[in-house]
Simulated assay, not measured.
Amino acid sequence: MQSVAGILGDRWSLLIIRDIVFDGKKTYGEFLKSEEGIATNVLASRLAFLEDQGILSRAPSPDDGCKDFYTLTEKGLDLIPVVLNIVLWSAKHDSKSYVRRRKEFVARLSQSPLQVSEELKALVRNGGCMFPESKE
């Protein structure tokens, strides 16, 4: 069995999960457009790894059979509280954090982390995301 550090110990795994949860990204091409600039081979490797670990599931796109949709499994959804804690840390300590522009969200998360986490898990489970307007 993989350790948590083995699964989430690299930046790309967390960024893929972040992009699903916050931006609603679902396809290889959408993940590739993330501002961090992941290399194509690294992205393919991380998606396959996260799928092998049961964090992501992959299914053909209903609109385009040539594309696959990646979604969080229940195991992956259980990582949302971890990601939200990282978001809070980032908002507090990282002056370049994009989440700092989301003051209302950060304030609500700070006040009710469990409630926000459960709401976000339900939203993502149903195909939504936290900030749908930021999706490219």
Rank of each mutant, 00 (worst) to 15 (best):
Q2F: 04
Q2M: 15
S3W: 04
L8R: 00
D10S: 10
R11T: 11
W12D: 13
S13P: 00
L14C: 15
L14N: 12
L15C: 15
I17N: 00
I17E: 00
I20H: 01
V21L: 02
D23W: 12
D23E: 14
G24A: 08
G24R: 01
K25C: 14
Y28K: 14
Y28M: 02
E30S: 06
E35A: 15
E36A: 12
I38A: 14
A39P: 01
A39Q: 14
T40E: 14
V42G: 08
S45T: 12
R46D: 11
L47T: 07
L47Q: 11
A48L: 09
F49V: 03
G54L: 04
G54F: 08
I55A: 05
S57N: 13
R58A: 15
P60G: 04
G65L: 09
T71G: 03
T71E: 11
T73F: 06
E74H: 07
K75T: 11
G76V: 03
G76H: 04
L77D: 03
D78V: 09
I80C: 08
P81C: 11
V83K: 05
N85F: 03
V87K: 09
S90A: 14
S90R: 15
A91Q: 05
D94A: 08
S95K: 13
S95C: 09
S97L: 03
Y98T: 08
Y98V: 14
V99R: 12
V99K: 07
R100D: 06
R100P: 01
R101N: 14
R101D: 15
E104I: 04
E104D: 15
F105M: 04
A107S: 10
A107P: 00
R108M: 09
L109S: 08
Q111Y: 05
S112V: 02
S112R: 13
Q115C: 03
S117V: 03
E118N: 15
E118Q: 11
A122N: 11
R125C: 11
N126M: 09
N126T: 07
N126Q: 14
G127I: 02
G127L: 06
G128I: 06
C129P: 00
P132G: 12
P132M: 03
P132I: 08
E133Q: 09
E133T: 09
S134P: 00
K135M: 01
E136K: 05
E136C: 09
